[in-house]
Design a protein around this nucleic acid. Structure first.
Ligand code: MN
Ligand code: MN
Ligand code: ZN
Ligand code: ZN
Lengths: 168, 168
DNA sequence: TCCTTATTCGCACGACTTGCGAATAATCAC
DNA sequence: GTGATTATTCGCAAGTCGTGCGAATAAGGA
């Protein structure tokens, strides 16, 4: 999303009022890569502004979403998550922590998919499920991302068995 | 999922009892490509067995999931959906109807993704969002799927504006 | 400062799912 | 077939997450 100042400007342009609650939320969401839930954001906001209501957090996030400043993410069935990154990107989910990371994929068009006849694709969302290996804490250099080709560890699914026997 | 008879056999092997409710649900889920919700399945089941409870539908679907006979799908934030297809596959969602279609992708490994450093991918899920164009109803030939390369119509997102002006 | 009305925020409610336990019924031993 | 055992069903309560509602409050302009 845009900077708090820019978002504030857009708010004014639209006749919306600049409240302390909104300004706080603008700053908390700006450059926020944690994909927070409403409750999570509310907790953080409450430290700086005790008394701010969860309802207001929901409302402001909805406004930002309507304005295209943030994106909504449904996901694992848990709480809705808010994404301050509105660029075209995808996600990696750590199965252990539930953390979400942004992932950029540049060759989605190359996917060979057997789509239903007559289906017109508008956009594609990809989620990489996996684990973030424990850092060997060698070079403290924050190496956020690294280009690589996907290689699933094992496509092993649920514990199915080969039903053999009295199947008539 | 396996055939009702096979699932029934697996149930017995595990000391579970074969009730009419379960048997009905086995048959309703077998080869069911509609990715139904619990409520949807309950409605259908209620026609053949008036009185069957929604609670039992949830319970049985959970059992089938635990046994690896079906898969759970979270998704758009609405109700949980149950997938009788446990093969490795992906989905296409019609934005108009919400219908879900199975999609097979054979070259996921070719994706070039900038994953977080140290992230080990276990599996990837892809969702194609779009619309199912109205059939010209020419050949009634049910042509379920057709291989093709993905080509998004337009990556246009939310209605953002170029914040120009009083940005300090 | 005063007025207008957008905003905040608590509460109720809705959608979806799960916990709980009494009543019921499937399965087995005899 | 009869009876005992206990897994299962099912209604209801409760939990989670998000939204509708409206009175009290406060932003922003006159
Ligand atoms: Mn909205
Ligand atoms: Mn389960
Ligand atoms: Zn993101
Ligand atoms: Zn499917």
């Amino acid at each position: 999303m845009h900077s708090p100042a820019e978002v504030a400007a857009r708010y004014k342009e639209q006749g919306r009022r600049l409240t302390p609650q909104r300004q706080l939320l603008f700053s908390l969401m700006h450059n926020n890569a944690s994909h927070p839930t409403a409750e999570g954001l509310h907790e953080v906001a409450s430290k700086r502004m005790p008394g701010i209501s969860l309802r207001t957090v929901y409302q402001t996030l909805d406004e930002l979403s309507d304005m295209g400043e943030i994106q909504l993410m449904h996901g694992d069935g848990g709480a809705l998550r808010f994404d301050s990154n509105v660029d075209e990107h995808h996600h990696a989910v750590c199965a252990e922590t539930g953390e979400l990371f942004d992932v950029y994929v540049d060759n989605i068009e190359s996917l060979r998919a057997q789509l239903p006849a007559g289906f017109e694709v508008q956009n594609v969302s990809i989620v990489f499920h996996g684990r973030l290996a424990k850092k060997k804490s060698q070079t403290t250099t924050k190496s956020p991302a690294r280009p690589q080709t996907v290689r699933a560890k094992s496509t092993k699914r649920s514990p199915r068995r080969t039903s053999r026997g009295s199947t008539k």
